[in-house]
């Protein structure tokens, strides 16, 4: 019962969603719309579970690890302030503490971490260069050719632009298609395995 009922729900939900795709009636659209709405709602409930986990782990650190205590408190306090600031829906308007914390803490840090990628791309390229395998070299060489298009080099640039356009539209596209086709077949096969209850690791295995 504990195991077979969830598998039954998976099977039922999966089969309904499968046939729903081929049935254009109102009832079918209703199912599609509502099932997706419901999923989102359950996700918010799960968020409470997540916050609970975060608080528990952070509290544990604060209590038992003196080196981490200060930082654990930073997390807890900042989370507390943000929750209090966002308690009322009116605080979601521009200029409120909630939105200021979003705009001047979250946004800059988010953007800065994202921009670190500029450095990481370079160091990853160097790492691939040092690997000295045929595959890594091929990858780097193509990357180099594609990057060259940003540097003005007169006649070479013109030739390079033509070459880059060709790489992007010919070998690049061909391999991407092979990946997409393979991934598509794999995804569909996995979906079938899930619906049939053969793949059940997500329910905690057997």
């Amino acid at each position: 019962m504990k195991k077979s009922l969830p598998l039954g729900i998976v099977f039922f939900a999966g089969v309904v969603m499968f046939f729903q795709h081929f049935i254009p009636t109102d009832q079918s659209e209703f199912i599609y719309k509502y099932a997706n709405d419901w999923l989102i709602c359950i996700g918010v409930y799960a968020m409470l579970l997540g916050i609970w986990s975060l608080i528990r782990v952070t509290l544990h650190k604060a209590r038992h690890d003196p080196n981490e205590r200060f930082y654990a408190i930073v997390t807890l306090v900042s989370m507390g302030i943000m929750i209090v600031a966002g308690w009322d829906v009116d605080n979601l308007r521009a200029g409120s503490l909630f939105m200021n914390m979003f705009n001047y803490i979250l946004i800059p840090v988010q953007a800065t971490i994202f921009s670190l990628l500029a450095f990481y791309v370079a160091s990853a390229a160097y790492r691939a260069f040092r690997a000295r395998t045929v595959l890594a070299t091929l990858l780097l060489f193509t990357a180099f050719v594609v990057m060259l298009r940003m540097i003005p080099l007169g006649y070479i640039s013109e030739l390079n632009q033509y070459l880059v356009a060709w790489i992007l539209s010919v070998p690049n596209l061909a391999a991407k298609r092979a990946i997409i086709m393979g991934v598509g077949l794999g995804m569909m096969a996995t979906s079938i395995k899930i619906i049939l209850g053969i793949e059940r690791q997500y329910l905690g295995g057997d």
Binding site: A124, L135, G186, A189
Partner: peptide
């Protein structure tokens, strides 16, 4: 592929 030691590409991950 550039930064890790081994990469499972697309369908290989499922496999």
């Amino acid at each position: 592929i550039a930064a890790t030691d081994f990469t499972l590409i697309g369908e290989e991950l499922y496999a």
